[in-house]
Simulated assay, not measured.
Amino acid sequence: MRWLPVLYVVIVLLLEPVTPVEWPVSFVLIALPLLTAFAHGPAVVAGATVFAVLLEGVLAGTPCCAGRSVGYLWDRHYVASYICTALVGALGTILAAHRVRRERTLADVRFVAEIAQRVLLRPVPHRIGNLLLASLYLSAAAEARIGGDLYEAVPTMYGVRLLIGDVRGKGLLAVETAAALLGAFREAAYDESDLPALAGRVETSMSRGATLLGGSEMSERFVTAVFAEIPADAHVVRVVNCGHPPPLLIRPDEVRELDRGRSAPPLNLGMLIGDPYHVDVYEFRPGDQLLLYTDGITETRDPAGSFYPLPQRLRSWGPLPPRELMERLHQDLLAYSHDRLQDDTAALTACLLADERSAPPPPPAGVADSGEPR
Rank of each mutant, 00 (worst) to 15 (best):
G41Y: 06
T93W: 07
A359C: 09
P360G: 15
D253K: 12
A347P: 01
V21Q: 08
L325P: 04
G148D: 00
A350T: 03
L182C: 03
T49C: 10
G92T: 04
T105W: 05
L182T: 01
S263T: 13
R186E: 03
D344E: 02
A225C: 11
E16S: 11
S81L: 10
P245Q: 07
V9F: 05
W3C: 11
W74V: 14
R145L: 02
P125Y: 02
P276T: 10
R374G: 12
L132Q: 09
T105C: 04
E327L: 14
G366N: 11
S337G: 12
G215W: 07
Y8T: 05
D108G: 04
D343K: 02
L106P: 00
A189R: 04
P321K: 07
D369I: 07
N268T: 10
G41L: 13
L59Q: 01
D194Q: 13
T211I: 10
V9T: 08
P246F: 08
L329N: 02
D75N: 15
A228T: 06
V18W: 07
R357A: 14
D369Q: 12
A179G: 15
A46N: 08
D295W: 03
N268D: 09
E356G: 11
D369T: 09
D344T: 01
P245A: 09
R357P: 02
G214R: 10
M157E: 14
E324M: 14
P125G: 04
D259H: 13
I128P: 00
L320V: 12
G89H: 03
V9W: 03
G71T: 00
L334H: 13
P311K: 05
E372G: 06
E114H: 04
R256P: 01
R238F: 08
G270M: 02
R208D: 13
R110N: 06
H40I: 10
R186L: 06
L162C: 02
Y137P: 01
V109T: 12
L162R: 01
D191E: 15
F27R: 11
E203W: 07
D339C: 11
P319E: 13
N268G: 08
A116D: 02
N268S: 14
T93K: 03
E56Y: 00
I164N: 00
Q342I: 06
P123L: 07
A188F: 10
L195N: 10
Y158F: 14
G41M: 12
E187S: 12
L163H: 05
D75C: 07
R101H: 06
E283T: 13
E254K: 14
A66W: 06
R68G: 03
E143W: 00
L121C: 02
V255S: 03
P247S: 10
V226H: 04
T93H: 04
A86L: 14
R102G: 04
I94R: 15
A350R: 00
R118D: 10
A225E: 03
Q312R: 14
H98F: 10
E283S: 15
D108I: 01
F307S: 07
P276I: 09
Y8S: 05
E257W: 13
G89I: 06
L73T: 03
D344A: 03
G71L: 00
V167F: 01
L35T: 08
V28H: 02
L249W: 08
M218E: 11
V12H: 00
L13I: 00
L14Y: 04
A188N: 09
E152Q: 12
R102F: 06
D75F: 13
R256I: 08
